[in-house]
Each structure stands twice: as C-alpha cells, then as structure tokens.
Amino acid sequence: MADRLNDTVALVTGASSGIGEATARDLAGRGATIALVARRKDRLDALAAELGGRTLVINADVTDQAAAEAAVAETVNELGRLDTVVNNAGVMLLGPAVGAPLEEWERMVDINVKGLLHVTHAALPHLLTAAESGPRQVADLINISSVAGRVARAGSGVYNLTKFGVTAFSESLRQELASRHVRVSVVEPGAVATELTSHMRPEMRDSTRARFADVERLLSEDIGDLIGYMVSRPRRMALNEILVRPTNQAN
C-alpha cells in the first residue's frame, strides 16, 4: 500500500496518554517502528507491550535539553534511523493573568516551547538524512499546536503565547526545509477529550470543562488518525497546517 510506513522510525513525545499515545498506535499500525518518549514509564511500558515489535521506551523529560538530546540519540542508535518526529508533549494551565502563579507560566513555556525546541534541534540532522537516503525519500516533523495558536482568549495568555509560537516556528522551519523534503507541519486541535485539563487548578479545570460541556469533543484517536494520514502522504504532497475542531465547537 502506498500509505505504508514500513522501514521507517517515528519518535513521539508525550506518548504516555492522549494524542501522543493515539498517534503512536496509528503510526505503528501503518508499519512504522516507534520510539515512545514521556515521563511516565509504566504507561510507556504498557503501550510498548501492546504495540510489540521493536518499540522503544524512553523515559525522559524533554524540558531537559540533555535528556531530549539523549532520547533522539538513543532512538537512532537503537532503531537505526529517524524519519518522523511528533512533538506532542504539552500542558495547558489556564487562568487570569492577575494573580497567576508564575510557575504555571514557566511550566507552559518549558514544556510547550523549550521541550519542542530541544527535540527538534536534536532531530533535524537525522530527519535531513532520512529525507536524503530513507526508504520514502521524505521526512516529517509534526508539531502539535492548538486552536489557541490562532485565536487569543482572556485567561489563556501564556498558553496562547506558546501555541502561537509553535505555529510561527513551524511555518518558518517549513519554508527553510521544504526544498530538502523535510515536511514541517502543524496540527491545531480544538477541544479533545484528553487529560489536558487535569493539570489545572480546580477552579479553572471546572470552568473550562463547563465551557465545553455541550461540545462533542474530538477523541485522541481522531488526531492520531489525522497525523498518520499526514505522515503517510506521498513525497510530492505536504499538509502544512491543519486546524481541526469538533463539529459543534464554534470557536
């Protein structure tokens, strides 16, 4: 089948739950060998047992530059190459700016931006090699942004900052690497039923969930399927940016 990813290797961050876990399943189902990267090793081990094959578990915090670099190096050393990177690790800590804990702002910047940059910086040489000599003659860098990377809202300022930044960085990098057949794409989901709200302070978690109470939220599998579709397109075709919302989410 033309959309198979046989003989390729994909690294997925934030793979212990939600979109990362679903993406790992989808890419594995298309024939890719997967490196699972996250902090919760027990969950990674369970997913690796399910996926089977040569699935690699890497217990790492990508906010640590050395750990991110080591995760990429281990993937290449153990699995032989790196064709696809999905930067999915992220956190959403909403709330008014006045009186907000500075730690929440720093945490979002560290995970959503710095973690993505650490992995990307370490992975780029390997993606370029894959595009030049790999079985598909193309490589993919998929960055997970958000509808919050397009539309700013009160109470989402720093989350907006990080996701607008991811979208802008992805577009700049896309332009730089397009002629070398490294496809840089950004996915901007709306409301998805994941653990994302569970990290918020209780009052913000409750108000955010109430806001989407009448929305039939997307499933992680919906986004995983979308990413699998993007990565498996033929070399001549790049899906640069996809905004995907639940059908009844207005904004």
Results as ranks from 00 to 15, higher is better:
Ala139Arg: 06
Ala71Asp: 03
Val186His: 09
Gly165Lys: 03
Met1Cys: 12
Gly52Asn: 08
Asn77Trp: 01
Thr63Asp: 13
Ile19Gln: 07
Pro135His: 02
Arg217Cys: 08
Gln65Ala: 15
Val215His: 00
Ile111Thr: 15
Ala73Glu: 14
Ala250Tyr: 10
Pro246Glu: 13
Ala22His: 00
Pro189Tyr: 12
Lys114Met: 13
Gly90Ile: 07
Trp105Leu: 10
Val113Lys: 02
Ala152Phe: 00
Asp42Ala: 15
Arg183Gln: 12
Gly14Ile: 12
Ala22Leu: 00
Arg233Trp: 12
His126Ile: 09
Thr13Trp: 08
Glu106Val: 04
Val85Trp: 03
Asp7Met: 02
Glu50Gly: 04
Ala38Arg: 10
Glu171Pro: 01
Ile111Ser: 14
Asp64Val: 04
Ala24Pro: 04
Ala123Ser: 15
Ala32His: 05
Leu94His: 05
Ala68Tyr: 08
Glu203Phe: 05
Glu188Gly: 06
Val86Ile: 00
Ser17Leu: 10
Thr247Pro: 06
Thr33Glu: 10
Arg180Tyr: 04
Glu104Ala: 11
Pro246Arg: 13
Thr13Tyr: 11
Ala35Val: 06
Val57Trp: 02
Thr13Asn: 05
Leu82Ala: 07
Ala2Leu: 14
Leu51Met: 06
Glu241Ile: 08
Val98Lys: 13
Gly31Val: 07
Ala66Val: 06
Glu195Thr: 08
Thr63Glu: 12
Leu196Ile: 15
Asp206His: 02
Val147Lys: 11
Val151Pro: 02
Gly31Arg: 01
Asn59Trp: 02
Val85Cys: 03
Ser207Gly: 01
Ile142Cys: 09
Thr129Arg: 15
Ala67Gln: 14
Glu78Trp: 06
Trp105Met: 11
Glu104Gly: 11
Val186Thr: 15
Ala210Cys: 04
Asn160Met: 02
Val109Tyr: 14
Arg174Met: 06
Arg211Asp: 14
Asp140Thr: 07
Arg235Tyr: 10
Glu203Leu: 09
Val86Gln: 05
